[in-house]
């Protein structure tokens, strides 16, 4: 599948933004984080900025961005529509939670309750994003449980890194808890990715060149319908650098999981200044890594329509 930059940016940025929102709510509800206004302001700007930027970026690949509002209407059948509705609904409790924290200096009681509602809505939104891909039977690499688990894990993982980063820069009292969340979710992220790769490497779609044509025997494309690539082949038959996927997988393992994991672990033991530097390094590495991870999520996915264009399996 063609890895559109706008969609990669949207899924990673909004995932991280929602993840940060979830951690802000959880650490408020447990009383781990004091309602420091400066910290709250920075964290909410970062979280809602990433979410909003991501949502706006997702409209960039549309043929008619000015009609994007129409995408809210078909929530009864369409996961894309559900995602839009959930994203919009999340703003209400999230903004109230932010207002309580930043304007009234509280993140407990009713504010914490609003935060937990926002966190639940954020998780629902990430789930809807994952389901846009997971619901497509045509793409074997997406139509499985790991897509849903992956999107939610990476939202929480990148959110936890941003939470630890903001906390370390502001010198919050309980940075160890924040770093702990980042360490645990990074390890979890690695395990999920490993299982996902094992799944897509070991299985393939039930559709083959034979089921696509229903011809008896060994089916192979003799002549394509045309000499040039068409829309279907460029969108669904993305091939460039797939032979590099092994290298890019290694890059994902190093930048998305290994470097952040070690950096957060060292930050856990280090003093405040060193902890902030290490957390920044870990987060920047993860940011680069998650972009590669998401690029691969698209580039490695094969679509069954390519069975009509010479592929034997999908």
């Amino acid at each position: 599948m063609h890895p559109a930059k706008s969609v990669i940016l949207f899924t990673t940025a909004s995932g991280a933004g929602y993840g940060l929102l979830i951690w802000l709510a959880l650490f408020s509800a447990t009383g781990t984080i004091a309602p420091d206004r400066g910290f709250g302001f920075a964290a909410f700007v970062l979280s809602l900025g990433l979410v909003t930027g991501g949502l706006l970026s997702s409209t960039l690949h549309l043929g008619h961005p000015e009609r994007a509002w129409r995408a809210m209407s078909q929530w009864r059948t369409s996961w894309l529509s559900r995602e839009g509705v959930a994203a919009l609904l999340t703003y209400a409790p999230a903004l109230l939670f932010a207002a309580a924290w930043v304007l009234f200096g509280t993140n407990s009681g009713i504010a914490a309750f609003l935060g937990l509602i926002a966190a639940a809505m954020a998780l629902v939104t990430i789930y809807c994003t994952a389901m846009i891909y997971a619901s497509l039977r045509t793409v074997h690499a997406w139509h499985n449980i790991w897509t849903r688990i992956g999107y939610m894990t990476y939202g929480l993982m990148t959110g936890a890194a941003l939470m630890a980063l903001t906390g370390s820069l502001w010198g919050v009292a309980r940075l160890d808890s924040l770093l702990g969340a980042a360490i645990v979710t990074t390890a979890l992220g690695y395990m999920v990715k490993w299982r996902y790769w094992r799944f897509i490497d070991g299985t393939s779609s039930a559709s083959t060149a034979e089921t696509a044509t229903r011809l008896k025997g060994d089916v192979r494309l003799l002549e394509a319908p045309h000499t040039e690539a068409n829309y279907l082949m460029t969108e669904m038959g993305f091939q460039i650098a797939r032979d590099h996927s092994a290298k890019l997988r290694r890059a994902t393992l190093v930048f998305c999981f290994a470097v952040p994991f070690v950096a957060f672990l060292l930050a856990y033991a280090a003093g405040p200044v060193l902890a902030a530097i290490l957390t920044l390094l870990g987060t920047l590495s993860m940011a680069a890594g998650i972009l590669v991870e998401r690029w691969l999520f698209f580039a490695e996915a094969k679509h069954v329509v390519m069975l009509y264009y010479g592929e034997k399996t999908a």
């Binding site: 599948m1 690949h61 549309l62 043929g63 008619h64 961005p65 009609r67 994007a68 129409r70 995408a71 369409s78 894309l80 846009i132 497509l136 039977r137 045509t138 793409v139 559709s207 696509a212 068409n230 829309y231 279907l232 969108e235 669904m236 679509h303 069954v304 329509v305 009509y308």
Partner: peptide, 20 residues
């Protein structure tokens, strides 16, 4: 009313939908 999100072309196994 189509916004050109191309999701339908991803959902179709047969390549029946093309983006203009």
């Amino acid at each position: 009313t189509c916004i050109g999100c191309k999701l339908c072309s991803w959902a179709c196994p047969y390549g029946a939908r093309e983006y203009d």
